[in-house]
């Protein structure tokens, strides 16, 4: 029987084991050392390596700037952004520095850094602590955006991100931290840039990342009971996107639904929809559907927030619509 641990523990293990293996890896961020991080993800690392875990001032620009500089010297920094929303404060360092270093140095050095960013809504913390930020970074060639959905992926993708020589923004959805699943004890990598077919099917393709994967799985079960076969694709890396896996799937099913937690405008749903319109037009049997948040900031009051975030029933409605078309 494989070992069952939480998503949080899987992340912690990825960092710990990579630090054991490679002394160039270190962690830094606000409250990540002595306290083990605001969400407890780096617990125990400072106790083991007091010289490789650093509590910083509230200085996200300095944190990411330091990562850029340290990584061109060959170190492998892993920084934590307590909330992904704060990425705006270090946006310049990510967009105009990290993402361009390999290009600028023509491959001689690069920003081999990971910024772990705590993302997503549903915790009643209003518009500055709930956003899905991947669209803000998706048109920055040079950056990699990784988005695990399970504990197994949390560990394998974080290990791969630490070893990758590009700047990786590693999205950790708050609602997944306590999710438990099978995670091997030994070190392993899940390759970046590869989507995963979570379940095979023939009628509808659902693409869903992070916390939205559970909606897709539930919908697939519900549709299966009605004789409709759903294929689920979890992108794992949101940018650059594994177009081939998605295209192969939609070429087979002819129907696509993208479930995305953030607002509808310009998310990965928009990119996948445009890509299929361009490259797979003749295979489509029905319009592409997106199930997303409304195009508003995330409000505080629970009823309002629930109204704005994606609804599971909308996934079912979308399935029925694409089948009926």
């Amino acid at each position: 029987m494989a070992r069952i641990i939480s998503f949080s523990k899987a992340l912690n293990e990825a960092m710990t084991q990579e630090m054991e293996r490679d002394e160039n890896v270190f962690i830094l961020g606000e409250d990540v050392a002595k306290m083990g991080g605001d969400f407890g993800i780096t617990t125990g690392i400072w106790e083991r390596w007091p010289n490789r875990a650093f509590d910083t001032a509230l200085s996200e620009s300095a944190i990411t700037g330091l990562c850029c500089g340290a990584s061109v010297c060959g170190l492998r920094p892993v920084a934590e952004l307590m909330f992904a929303d704060f990425i705006t404060v270090c946006y310049d360092q990510l967009v105009n520095n990290a993402a361009k270093l390999n290009y600028m140095y023509q491959g001689e050095a690069s920003a081999q850094m990971v910024v772990r960013a705590v993302t997503g809504g549903g915790i009643r913390c209003a518009y500055h602590h709930s956003q899905c930020i991947e669209p803000w970074l998706m048109n920055i060639p040079g950056l990699v955006i990784v988005a695990p959905a399970t504990p197994y992926e949390a560990k394998g993708l974080l290990v791969a991100s630490i070893r990758n020589n590009n700047p990786v923004v590693f999205l950790e959805h708050k609602h997944l931290y306590n999710v438990k699943g099978e995670v091997p004890e030994e070190l392993y990598e899940i390759p970046l840039y590869e989507a995963h077919v979570e379940r095979e099917g023939t009628d509808i393709t659902i693409v869903a990342a992070m916390s939205m994967l559970k909606f897709a799985q539930k919908a697939a079960d519900e549709m299966a009971a009605k004789g409709i076969s759903v294929e689920i694709i979890n992108p794992r890396t949101i940018f650059p996107l594994d177009k081939e896996t998605i295209k192969e799937s939609v070429a087979k099913t002819g129907r696509l639904i993208v479930v995305q937690e953030g607002p509808k405008v310009m998310g990965y749903g928009a990119e996948i929809g445009a890509m299929l319109g361009e490259e797979l037009f003749e295979y489509l049997k029905a319009p592409i559907k997106r199930v997303t948040s409304l195009d508003t900031p995330v409000p505080f009051a629970p009823g309002m927030e629930d109204y704005v975030l994606p609804h599971y029933e909308d996934v079912i409605t979308a399935c029925n619509e694409v089948m009926a078309y």
């Binding site: 009643r124 913390c125 209003a126 518009y127 409000p299 505080f300 009051a301 629970p302 309002m304």
Partner: peptide
């Protein structure tokens, strides 16, 4: 308390 009578109609909460 995230209520409609709140000074910001419940949109913001403690921090806002």
């Amino acid at each position: 308390f995230a209520k409609a009578t709140g000074i910001n109609g419940g949109r913001g909460g403690s921090m806002h």
